[in-house]
Write a protein that binds this DNA or RNA. Structure first.
Lengths: 198, 198
DNA sequence: TATAAAACATACAGGTCTGTAGCGTGTCAA
DNA sequence: TTGACACGCTACAGACCTGTATGTTTTATA
């Protein structure tokens, strides 16, 4: 709640909370959420356990916060690319596949946090699943907006196909040769767009 | 080891082992591997814990056996489809997308066990990861064989694109409308094939 | 400077997890 | 009949997990 008074500029950033979340995000992503206990997060972030539980009521809340953070990060990268291509939807899509392909090709890339965490918590209704599902809907929504600018017969269907390509890229690190991801994805995207226009 | 003597017909099937593996597979797939303890497997399969540990030395061994079982299952379905289309590679691919799309569209589908379990065990060298990685290589290998019969300029690249589509389908249950998966995937596959021929 | 909020440190409660030990029972083959 | 072996049952060791309780110290604000 923090009850920031009117005249005070309000610290806004909470250093301890941020340090916990950043450390947890790193550990969760690298080792998996279930494999990382709160004690490890506490130790690695050099913080008291009570502080962790003050800022995040339960571990599930911390996990959800982790996914929300990753979500924000992802869309901020996306938005930065979008801004540069307001006039050309195809160029925008190419640019997205550029950074996605580059990211997927990194040697220490461990897959999409949303997909990975959803796999760790199959039961419907789990806080982490809700964030992950919202992320998926948002992806489809944004691809829909792009598809509608591409003069295809069925934008919604094209958006679905592009979503499959992007999600597929996130779980196919194994099958890519070094450096081929971007070109391979982009060619596939162009192919389905061309087919959608015929 | 079982040391089956020469004259004895050897029971071949081990009922207890099979029951454990089947129960574990069901539970692991439905609820996630890390979420299911050996005690639960023991209880649900109506078996003694000692029996579980006699047949599978550790839980990791049981997990690996689970993935190998799913792997066999997957390729046996694949093979059954392949047999019916020895003469027509495109028809074979269509048929594969048929059953994959159908499977992905089931209301209780929980994703590809290999991908899910790999997400649960990020550390390289884990027994479960090895099975999952072998599964991915096998997928690419088989798609390569199909692509080579399709008269495209770069079969290997096409195989990569098809692998992305298939893996993407396995993690995109959210984005599909009911019943649209097969058609959507098949159209995308046809598009990348056509592009590979031009 | 006085007071409240936040952070730190430590211990622990209560549960779950994997894996093992000990002992009795049924089965089958030599 | 005897020995080997698979199986079942119970209990438990030892580790790890989430979350809380207690008390002290720092920090910021009024």
């Amino acid at each position: 709640m923090t009850k920031s008074t009117a005249n005070a500029p309000a610290p806004a950033v909470n250093e301890v909370r941020d340090r916990i979340l950043e450390t947890a995000s790193e550990l969760f992503y690298r080792r998996g959420v279930r494999a990382v206990g709160v004690d490890l997060v506490v130790e690695k972030s050099g913080v008291a356990k009570t502080s962790l539980y003050r800022h995040f009521g339960t571990k599930d809340d911390l996990i959800a916060a982790f996914l929300k953070r990753e979500d924000l990060d992802f869309w901020s990268t996306w938005d930065r690319v979008t801004e540069r291509h307001a006039d050309d939807a195809l160029a925008e899509l190419d640019a997205h596949f550029e950074w996605i392909g580059e990211r997927v090709g990194r040697h220490n890339y461990r897959g999409c946090p949303q997909i990975n965490t959803a796999a760790e918590f199959p039961e419907a209704g789990h806080p982490a699943r809700k964030v992950a599902e919202a992320h998926m809907r948002e992806l489809r929504r944004r691809l829909n907006a792009i598809a509608e600018r591409l003069a295809v017969a069925a934008p919604d269907r094209l958006a679905g196909q592009l979503a499959v390509l992007i999600n597929g890229a996130f779980v196919s690190m194994q099958v890519f040769e070094p450096g081929e991801a971007t070109g391979l994805l982009r060619d596939a995207a162009h192919a389905v767009i061309a087919a959608g226009r015929s």
